[in-house]
Write a protein that binds this DNA or RNA. Structure first.
Lengths: 233, 233
DNA sequence: CGGACGCTTGATTGTCCTCAAGATCGGTGG
DNA sequence: CCACCGATCTTGAGGACAATCAAGCGTCCG
């Protein structure tokens, strides 16, 4: 195949009413805790993959340095997120904290043992990969859209995360810099800045002196960031 | 997580020296055969996912129609490729033949049964998802590059496919139209055409009256399409 | 022959990048 | 306390690349 069909097998009919995720959660909670200051690396691309990580608090930027010298930010991890997964024995990405961060780690050897003994646990891995894939596909859909819409989508995601974590969705605190956002959205920092300015000019958001972003007009933001997907043909 | 860490668990240490893929191959070979003319649909987005497909000969275009009316080609399937995978009970993509095509199908119910009985088969599914993910990640890396390089990458992939199928790598027969290529690479047909012209002007390829593409200068093509990835930080 | 289709080519426009110059903030040291 | 500095962000001017709009060409096929 020249590329990819963009989907996976249907595992749904196999899903047992057991909560397999909790196994993973339990093991992770059992693992050691690490505390990091801002701008510290959890791991660097090329490091041997020794552990899987779950963020307790703080924020982490996952990125890749390209041969052209440019940086591609593949994602951000926040409280509750799991990162460090991968099929290779070395990390393909680097993970750097954006602020003071606390995280749990679980050795890959433990993971292997669990997956070996429990087929359901293997399914958890499969599901994790599926979720990753869905996210990547989504990113692919957004990458061709105009800069303003891409930023709108970014803000909508941030609101969703706030909602998930029980925080105010309309007050977005961004721990990352404009450069991080730009490298994530495939834009320059100047364009990101300009788009923020434009969103303010249109009274969709309000930014007070480097502080949090207040969302004033959710509907307009949603219109800008409306998904491109279709279910049927 | 705002997006995705771009990787999966490390399953490598679990891999048994058994060729699990052959199980899948055997089952697929056992399934019914379908013959389709050009421009026929194997399935359409929204159709219930009843089977998995493996192409014997011909070519298939996998695509999605977006709400904006635009079309996104997510990939092409050629002889030997498997497509129709997915986590949902309905197809998210449409699959249309580009020429006369012969394919095998295997019911998802059979897949489920196999996965249920054999944990190794589940791993095969996991690996398939990983491959999909890697391909999607790769696409993401190419999407920000200039049009000429994107087309070069496309041709390099085509050469690789020829090599895999035991055909002449330097003679590329493209069953798809410029529009298909454009929707795949995120370019317009005009730009694709212009880039083809440019590659000819620079004596990198040669196209004789709608016929196959002859690659004249592989090195230059490789330079244009050189990967952006880095292993280390 | 004529029409449909796919492809190519040209002219123009628009979006975003690049380059450049300030503005704002936080921290540091005199 | 204040001057200075670096980092981050904002804003502006110019330019590059690909999209859009438009026309024309070759081929296939009725």
């Amino acid at each position: 195949m020249l590329s990819h069909s963009g989907q996976q097998f249907d595992y749904a009919p196999l899903l047992k009413p057991i909560d397999v995720r909790s196994d993973l959660e339990r093991e992770i909670a059992r693992g050691p805790t690490r505390r990091l200051q801002a701008k510290e690396h959890v791991f660097i691309a090329g490091d041997p993959r020794s552990s899987l990580y779950r963020l307790d608090s703080g924020a982490v930027c996952l990125y890749q340095i390209l041969l052209s010298g440019r940086r591609r930010v593949t994602g951000f991890a926040f409280a509750g997120d799991i990162f460090g997964m991968g099929a290779l024995s070395q990390h393909a990405l680097s993970a750097q904290t954006l602020r003071r961060t606390r995280l749990h780690s679980i050795p890959t050897t433990t993971l292997s043992r669990l997956a070996f003994n429990d087929p359901h646990f293997g399914m958890t891995l499969y599901e994790a990969a599926c979720r990753e894939l869905a996210g990547t596909q989504q990113t692919l859909l957004t990458i061709k859209r105009p800069a303003l819409e891409r930023l709108a989508i970014f803000l909508l995601f941030s609101m969703q995360r706030n909602r998930r974590n029980g925080e105010d969705p309309e007050t977005i605190v961004l721990p990352m810099t404009r450069a991080d956002i730009g490298d994530f959205l495939g834009l320059t920092i100047e364009t990101v800045s300009r788009m923020f300015t434009k969103l303010q000019a249109e009274h969709i958001i309000e930014i007070k002196r480097r502080g949090p972003i207040h969302v004033l007009d959710i509907d307009k933001l949603r219109t800008l960031g409306a998904p491109e997907q279709t279910a049927g043909n």
